[in-house]
Design a binder for these strands. Structure first.
Lengths: 250, 250
DNA sequence: GCAAAAGTGTTAGTCCTACACCCATGG
DNA sequence: CCATGGGTGTAGGACTAACACTTTTGC
């Protein structure tokens, strides 16, 4: 995959952009990957533009690959943001002469609608890379509510809502957790996404009743206190169960 | 609201279109509004383009108003369709000289991504009007699976899936039924959307348990057999209940 | 051996399912 | 008066929610 840079905008379609809310889960915290702009010092979601002969999904995959280094990421379109004034304050259109970057102002200065995607990645596999307009690309806790540029805070919130409502229909646990994980870890993930606490014993009974997990003989060693068992997803059963939607609410 | 016509495309943004899946419910059938093109004789969803200073939601409202005559329609964005080749076969780009319509080929000939909306309308309030490229605008039964142009069959199916999954979170019954309706009518609507039959007595108990309906003293007269009671939605309770999502599955 | 986390079990109440019976209406 | 659809009720089983006790581990 060739790297796409903002300095050659000639192959991009006008008016259409996309933004990715990349979720990761680490140390019992739900995190989002954000860029920090060199010039304006604002935080922003990784995003990009649509190439002339590319689907939005492919464009999002391209952005994901460039920021995380990963292929085969779980990706879901969730909403288009099209308020007419939303792109007026795009920091990218500001002058970046001091960086030696030549920006195509005519391109950046147009009105953009942005298609929002959310992505689920395994935290430990990601090695974030900033783009050419940014000096950093880092995880921030969703709960910290960092101020983002333009309407990006809105985009994150809508992504969260969307993910929450699809918890029983999309393989969210599978994509956010490592291959092997403990029951308390899975529960924390659910609690974080749902924004509420769940009963430890009822959670375990319910999730096991779906038959989507394989209990392993190993336990998580090294931690303090009693070592919990490790589990892995039974992918075949998981997929089958998701087709009907996991039953019941949380 | 001024009528927007396809013969003046100068105010439209390039590359962006929208299509509306307009659902109605009549005589126990779920219906969709489709246009029939004068030149190509193909069926198509009502759609349009985005004006330079307009949100997608406003554009969709504009299209809805023009085709149905209605304001204040329930409208929901559900997906963007962006396969690169999808707009190649757009019949609108064909020559329509014989109709005396001057088409801006350069505009129609570009690649379009299309934002899909579904709309819910009260069947009896709609007076469908064709646009200037069509000779008819009529309801077709969803179950008839009429062949539509381009990827419009896909768009209808995705709209259905989306509406089905949101049945407990959006005021779908309220928007598709007239102000007063009977329990069997409401049940038929649910059965049609879900694609399966429900037990009459359990359905009634469950829907009443939500406290979202007011039972009226009137009954539906004129029909054969025992006359059913009329109900209306208790909008305040309905909205409140939807915020948490109606509990349980169907 | 103590504190904290994890494994396992029980019970009461609620909800869902699958039915049966009676009533009203038009032919 | 009968066929059909609509109004109402009930019993059994499944699932959920709330809660207690025991076990393991590091210090």
């Amino acid at each position: 995959m060739t790297k796409t840079v903002f300095t050659d905008t000639s192959k991009f379609l006008d008016h259409i952009s996309l933004d990715c809310v990349i979720f990761g889960f680490h140390e019992n915290e739900l995190k989002v990957l954000v860029l920090h702009y060199k010039t304006t010092k604002e935080y922003a979601l990784p995003g990009g533009f649509l190439l002339a002969d590319e689907s939005l999904e492919d464009a999002a995959k391209r952005v994901l690959k460039e920021r995380t280094g990963l292929d085969n990421i779980f990706l879901k379109q969730f909403k288009v943001f099209s308020t007419p004034g939303r792109s007026k304050s795009n920091p990218a259109i500001k002058d970046v002469k001091d960086l030696g970057i030549q920006i195509n102002h005519a391109f950046f200065d147009q009105r953009f609608i942005s298609v929002g995607f959310y992505a689920l990645v395994e935290f430990t596999k990601v090695h974030p890379k900033p783009d050419e307009l940014s000096d950093s690309c880092d995880w921030v806790n969703v709960t910290d509510n960092i101020e983002l540029m333009m309407d990006h805070n809105l985009i994150v919130n809508e992504a969260l809502d969307s993910m929450r409502s699809q918890l029983n229909h999309q393989p969210i646990g599978y994509n956010l957790l490592p291959d092997k994980f403990t029951m308390p870890e899975l529960q924390k993930l659910y609690e974080t996404i749902l924004g509420k606490e769940l009963d430890r014993r009822n959670f375990q009974r319910k999730i096991l009743s779906y038959k989507i997990l394989n209990k392993l003989d190993e336990r998580r060693k090294g931690g303090a206190y009693k070592s919990p068992y490790l589990y892995e997803f039974n992918l075949a059963n998981y997929q089958k169960a998701l087709n009907n939607g996991l039953s019941g609410g949380w």
